[in-house]
Design a binder for these strands. Structure first.
Lengths: 184, 184
DNA sequence: TCTCCCATGTAAAGCGTTACATGATTAA
DNA sequence: TTAATCATGTAACGCTTTACATGGGAGA
C-alpha cells in the first residue's frame, strides 16, 4: 500500500469525525491536537486535493444560505483502509525533539549566570502556562462526553502532555537551584 | 544585529570548542547534542560557507600527512558577539513537539485494542533505550572532566532528557494498565 | 581486497510556514 | 463602520534530509 506523510494521515483521521471541510479540520486541530500536532491552511488545502486525487476521499460542495460554499470531504473505504494500515505500522525511530532552550543552555558558559537564570525562569513560566492549558482541555473533554469512544484516547494524549511538562518544570526548578548554589 | 537560524548558532557554539572542521562538528553533534539537536552534512557545509561570508569565522586549510586536507574554522570577534547576543535573546514561544505516537493513539478507536497495546509497548522499549543512552553519556562526561567549565551545562541538558523520558515511560505504563482494564 | 574512517561538498526533493488574495455575513 | 467569523486557495520562501559524487589511507 502506498504511503503518505503523517500530516496526510492526521487529516484522514480527522475526516472520521464530523469535521469534513478544510476550515473545520483547521478548527479541530487548533482545539484538540494542537499540543502535539499542528497544521496550517497551507498544508490542509493541498493535502485535501491530494487525498481526493488518490481516491481516499470524495468531495461534495454544499451550499448553506447566508454562508459561503464549503467543500465537504468523505472518506472512501480505500481511505479508511489507508488510515488503519498506517495506525498499525510500528514507529520506526524516536525522532529528536529540537529544544532551543537546551541548545542555549548547552553553551551557557559563554553567558552571564543571571542571564541563564532568567532564560530558565521564562521557560518555566511558559511550561506552567502550557500545563494549565492541558488541564483546561482535559476538563472540557471530561465535562461533555459527547464522543465517549474517542474521549479515552484523547485523555491519554493529554496525560502525556501533563506528565512530560511536569517533568520539565521540575527540571527547571532543580537546575535553577543548582545554578544559584554554584554561583555562591 | 543580523540574525540567523538556530542551526547557524549551534555551529557557532560548537566552533567555541576544539571542533573546528565540518567533519569534527558532525562528530561532536552526534556524540554530544544529538538528543536535542541534530544536523546533517547537507546543512553543515553550506552553513560554514555562510558563516565565513558573514565574517563570523575565518577558514584556514590545514594539511596533515596521511590525512585529507581539512578546512578549519575559527570564530572572529564578530562571530562570538553574534553567539552571545543570540544566547541572551529570550525564547519567543514554546514550539509544538510533534509526536507520531500520540497522533496514532488519538485515533486509537479505529484500531484493535491489542494493536494499540503493542504500539505502546514498542514505544516504551524505545524510550528505555534512550534513557540508557543518556545515562551512558552522563557517565562519560562525569568520568573525564576535561572541560569542567562546560560540563555542568552539558549535564543539565542530559538531566532534562532523563527526566522527560522517565515521565514518558511512566505514562506508557499507566496507559497500558488503563487500556488492559478497559478491555476486560 | 575490502571495509572503515577521514574529509568535503552539491542537488533534488519533501515538508512546512507565512503572507497574500478574495469575498460574503454578522454583531458590536 | 469596523471587526470578527466563515471559507478556500496559491506562491514564495526557508529549512532539512537524502542521495549522490569523490578520493586517499589504514588495517584486517
Amino acid at each position: 500500500m502506498k504511503s503518505y506523510n503523517d500530516t496526510t494521515y492526521a487529516i484522514l483521521g480527522i475526516l472520521t469525525t464530523e469535521c469534513n471541510s478544510g476550515y473545520a479540520i483547521k478548527q479541530f486541530i487548533d482545539r484538540s491536537l494542537n499540543h502535539f500536532w499542528k497544521i496550517s491552511y497551507g498544508q490542509i488545502y493541498p493535502t485535501l486535493k491530494l487525498i481526493v486525487q488518490e481516491g481516499l476521499a470524495e468531495v461534495r460542495t454544499s451550499s448553506n444560505p447566508g454562508k459561503p460554499d464549503r467543500n465537504e470531504y468523505y472518506l472512501t473505504s480505500k481511505g479508511i483502509e489507508a488510515l488503519k494500515s498506517w495506525l498499525e505500522q510500528p514507529i520506526e525511530q524516536l525522532p529528536v525533539e529540537r529544544n532551543e532552550i537546551l541548545l542555549k543552555l548547552f553553551f551557557g558558559r559563554y553567558q552571564a549566570r543571571e542571564k541563564t537564570v532568567s532564560l530558565l525562569q521564562d521557560y518555566k513560566q511558559e511550561l506552567e502556562g502550557r500545563f494549565q492549558t492541558y488541564v483546561s482541555i482535559e476538563q472540557a473533554i471530561i465535562n461533555h462526553q459527547d464522543n465517549e469512544e474517542d474521549s479515552m484516547y484523547w485523555l491519554f494524549t493529554l496525560d502525556y502532555g501533563k506528565r512530560t511538562t511536569k517533568a520539565a518544570i521540575d527540571w527547571c526548578e532543580v537546575t535553577l537551584d543548582t545554578i544559584s548554589m554554584e554561583g555562591d
